[in-house]
């Protein structure tokens, strides 16, 4: 699947493993926070880049100590109106100084990526990949900011 990362449209090198799927021993994989907590030891042995997906109700603090082991944290939008992902991203980037990839996933809108980019999200996996070019163009909507 394609996504935007660092202002380019690329093929996703990462694979999300649903909680009921077996864990592969290698590859770049992302799992839910629950899976991470359950299978952490096994996951840390995976040959590849690791990611964790945060739901709106998850607390960033729960993975704070593991951030150095993660290449990716996903913030999920079950609904585009659920703005908790914005604060999660901001916490990860500014409070925990996470340097890796922060990716928005789920039901967010192309027209939200500018604000997402401003709170530290640097990759965008839109449910509708046809909207990727529009999303990319909206990253240039504003040339400065108040905050």
């Amino acid at each position: 699947m394609q996504l935007i990362k660092d202002q380019k449209i690329i093929d996703d090198p990462q694979q999300f493993i649903a909680d009921d799927q077996p864990l592969p021993s290698q590859g770049n994989i992302t799992v839910s926070l629950a899976r991470w907590q359950k299978d952490r030891t096994q996951l840390l042995k995976t040959a590849g880049k690791l990611g964790v997906r945060l739901e709106p109700t998850d607390a960033t603090a729960t993975i704070a100590d593991d951030l150095s082991k993660l290449a990716l944290v996903e913030v999920n939008f079950p609904l585009y109106t659920d703005g908790r992902a914005f604060s999660h991203a901001r916490h990860l980037r500014h409070h925990y100084r996470f340097q890796g990839e922060i990716r928005a996933v789920g039901q967010f809108m192309a027209d939200q990526v500018f604000y997402l980019s401003r709170v530290g999200v640097n990759s965008f996996q839109l449910a509708d990949t046809e909207k990727l070019p529009i999303a990319l163009s909206t990253l240039k909507d504003f040339s400065s900011s108040y905050q």
Binding site: Y80, G83, F86, S87, R90, Y115, L116, S145, Y146, Q147
Partner: peptide, 14 residues
Amino acid sequence: RQWTSFHPEFAYLP
């Protein structure tokens, strides 16, 4: 006013 305008984090509040 300036701080609240286009605040990226707080545009989708409850």
